[in-house]
Each structure stands twice: as structure tokens, then as C-alpha cells.
Simulated assay, not measured.
Amino acid sequence: MPFFIIAGAVNAAIAVALGAFGAHALKERLSERYLAIWETAVQYQMFHAIGLIAVGILMSTSLFGPSTALSWAGYLLLAGVIIFSGSLYILSLSGIGILGAITPIGGVAFIAGWIMLIIAAVKFGR
């Protein structure tokens, strides 16, 4: 399914752009603490963009093919990027600490997405 390949590629491009933005435009504007939070958001966005691409490739090849578990994996990884990295980007720029309480929801989505990929692999192996 090319949706997850496209979503992954878009997120990878955004991660590169936001990484460069953080390193150049925000370097002098944010404290070290908030710059480190920004960098964490960029790293997790990129890691999971690659995961989205992998899910898309697995779905669009004869290796796994379309499956409900893979679909869930992709959607959960995408939700994780939006919630986890998104909340950290906003936290870095706004300093609103309560946003840190939202971030773990994205982390749980990441973990669930990877677990769904494991389930898809186990089902495929049978």
C-alpha cells in the first residue's frame, strides 16, 4: 500500500527540514533544554518515518502483502509521530509544560505499532 511509503517519505522530509530548522534558526532562540527536546522529536520522527516506509514496502510486496496487522502498525506509527513528535515540537516552541503529559500517548502508539509489526511477522511465518 503506497500510503505508508508516502507518509513515511513525507515524514522523513519533514524531519530533515525541522532538524535543519532547529540546528540553524532555533539554535540561538531556544534554551539547551528545549533544543534537546526538539532534537528528540526530530529523531523519533525520522526513526518512525523509516518504520512507515518499511510497513508500506511489506504491504506492497509479495513478502507479506496487505494485512490488518500491518495496517494497524502503520496507522499507529503515524499517530505516534503526530502525537509524540508533534507535542515535543510544540512544547519546545511554547514552553507549555503540560504538553509533556501528552507525549507518552504517542510513545504508547509507537510501541503498539511495533508490536503490530511483530504480530504481522508471526502470522506471516505460520
Rank of each mutant, 00 (worst) to 15 (best):
T68L: 14
I90K: 05
L30G: 04
G80R: 00
A9P: 00
A12T: 11
I5P: 10
L117P: 02
Q45K: 09
V16I: 08
L117R: 07
R126Y: 11
Y89V: 00
A109F: 05
L78G: 09
S67K: 08
G106S: 05
V108N: 09
G97R: 10
Q45H: 07
I83L: 11
A20S: 10
F47V: 08
I102Y: 03
P66S: 13
I115P: 03
I53N: 12
V55C: 08
M116L: 10
L70Y: 04
L58V: 08
L58I: 08
G22Y: 01
T61F: 11
G125Y: 10
I105P: 14
H48G: 01
S31C: 02
I6A: 11
A49N: 11
I98Y: 11
A25W: 10
F47S: 04
G113I: 00
I90T: 13
Y75L: 12
S60D: 15
L76V: 08
S71A: 12
L26C: 02
R126P: 15
P2A: 15
L52H: 12
V16S: 07
R33T: 12
A112R: 03
A25C: 09
Q45D: 05
W72C: 08
I118L: 12
S87G: 02
A23T: 04
Q45I: 01
S62G: 10
E32T: 03
M59R: 14
A112I: 08
L35S: 09
W114M: 01
A54R: 05
S92V: 04
M59F: 13
A49W: 05
